[in-house]
Design a protein around this nucleic acid. Structure first.
Lengths: 232, 232
DNA sequence: ACCTGAACACCGTTCAAGT
DNA sequence: ACCTGAACACCGTTCAAGT
C-alpha cells in the first residue's frame, strides 16, 4: 500500500545534499540536536536511512552541513541589516550585525552545542568572517588587533555566549532550590546577590538566565574595550 | 580463572559513587568524552555495566558528577593560588584565580563539551561562585554589577572560552587550505590577516588557534572593562 | 545513478534474578 | 546490600544487492 503508485501522487522529489541538510535543520529545530539521527532524518525524507549515505559521507558531514546552512542564514540576515557605516560608528555597525546574527541563532537553539565540535571552515563561514574583517578595517583596526578581537568575541560574533548554567529544567528546579537553601549559611554572597537581582527582575528565581540584556551587556563591554584599544 | 579467588589478591575495593566518578574523569581524560560509555566505564572498574546503576541514577548523573569533580579540583587550585588582595588589586586577584582554574581545565579538555548541557548546580559550583562573589565585593562591586560581570565572563571564569574553530584535525587541514586558496579572491581581508598573523606567530598556518595569549587578551579586556564600570 | 535489506558493532537502560 | 545475565530499543555504518 505504501509502495502502490498513485497516478495523482506528486512525483517524488529526488534526494540531494541540500534537501538532506534542510531536513536536518528542521529536525533539530523541532526536537533538539539529539533528535537528529540518521534513521529519523531518513524517515522525515520518506527514505531508508542508508539512502542518506549516497548524498553525505556520514553523520559528521551532516553536522558540518547544518552549521553551514545556518551560517548562510546569518549571512543573509546580516547583509540585510540596517546599520550605520563602520567608518563613522564602528561600535554601532558591529553591534547591529552581531545582534542580527543572534536573531538567527535564536531560531536554531542547538547551534551552540555543535559549533565547537564541528569546525565549520566552509564558504559561508569564510564569507561571514571576511565581512566582519571588512568592518574592522573600515573602523581603523589593524589586522593584528582584529585577530585578537575575533578571538575575544569568540562565539559572540555569531550571536551567542557560552553560559555555565542552562535554564533549570522543571524537574531539577526543586532540587536546586533545596540545595541552595541548605547551603545558604555557607554562601552569603550568593544569597544576597540572588535577592538583589531577583528584586530587579521578578521573573527570575535564581538570578541567572541567559537573556538579551546579559548578552548585550557582555557584547558592549567587549566592543567598547576594543574601540578603546584601537585609538590607543 | 578470572573468578578464581587468589588469597594473595587485594580484596576488591567496593564500588561507590566517588570511585565511579573518578574513573569516569580518568576515562574522559584519556579518550575524550565520547570514550566515556557505561560499558567501558564498567570495564575499567572490573564490573558489569549494570552495576553502575546501583551507584548512579544514569549516565546523565555521571556527567553531572564529573563536572562536580572537576570544579572541586578548581576550588582547590584556586584556594592555593598566590594572588594579590582584591581590595588592593581586584583585576590581579581575579586574573590569578581564573588562570589557575584554566590550568585545571587544560587537564580535562572535554569539559567545554559538557559544561553547558550538564548544568552543575552543586556544592562545588556554589562554593566557587561564592568565592568569586567575595572577590567582587572586596573589589567594591555592587551585586548588580557582579551579576552582569559573571554573565559577561561566562565560561571564562572557569578558564575557557568558546572558540568557533577547533584546531584542524590532520585530515581536514589539507581540505581547508584548498578551500581557502580557492576562495582567496573573495576573501582578501582574511588572506591579508592570515599572512600578518602567521608572520607574527610562525607556528600557526591559518592564524587562529586558541592559545594562552588569546585567552588572556580576552580576559584582560573584560576585567579592565569591568574595573572601569565599577569606578564609573 | 540512486536507493534498499540484511547485518554488525555498539549504545543506554529495564527487570528479574542471583549472592 | 551489592552485583549480574538476559533482553530491549535504539544508534551509526558496511556491504552486497536491487532498479
Amino acid at each position: 500500500m505504501a509502495t502502490q503508485t498513485d497516478p495523482r501522487a506528486v512525483p517524488r522529489i529526488p534526494l540531494s545534499r541540500q534537501r538532506v541538510l534542510e531536513a536536518a535543520v528542521a529536525l533539530a529545530d523541532e526536537g533538539g540536536i539529539e533528535a537528529l539521527t540518521m534513521r529519523r532524518l531518513a524517515e522525515e525524507l520518506d527514505v531508508e536511512a542508508m539512502s542518506l549515505y549516497y548524498h553525505v559521507a556520514n553523520k559528521d558531514a551532516i553536522l558540518d552541513g547544518v552549521v553551514e546552512v545556518v551560517i548562510d542564514e546569518i549571512n543573509q540576515a546580516v547583509e540585510g541589516v540596517d546599520a550605520p557605516s563602520a567608518a563613522h560608528d564602528w561600535t554601532g555597525a558591529m553591534r547591529a550585525r552581531i545582534l542580527a546574527a543572534r536573531q538567527v541563532l535564536l531560531r536554531h537553539r542547538w547551534m551552540p552545542e555543535i559549533i565547537g565540535r564541528h569546525t565549520p571552515m566552509n564558504r559561508p563561514v569564510l564569507r561571514y568572517f571576511e565581512s566582519l574583517l571588512g568592518l574592522f578595517k573600515e573602523g581603523g583596526f589593524s589586522y593584528e588587533l582584529a585577530h585578537h578581537a575575533l578571538h575575544a568575541l569568540g562565539s559572540r560574533v555569531i550571536g551567542f555566549s557560552q553560559e555555565l548554567f542552562e535554564p533549570d529544567e522543571e524537574d531539577r528546579a526543586a532540587a536546586n532550590e533545596a540545595l541552595f537553601a541548605e547551603m545558604a549559611p555557607q554562601i552569603p554572597h550568593l544569597v544576597e546577590m540572588t535577592m538583589t537581582v531577583s528584586h530587579d527582575d521578578p521573573d527570575s528565581t535564581l538570578g541567572w538566565c541567559d537573556d538579551q540584556t546579559e548578552f548585550e551587556f557582555g557584547l558592549d563591554l567587549l566592543l567598547d574595550g576594543l574601540a578603546r584599544l584601537r585609538t590607543a
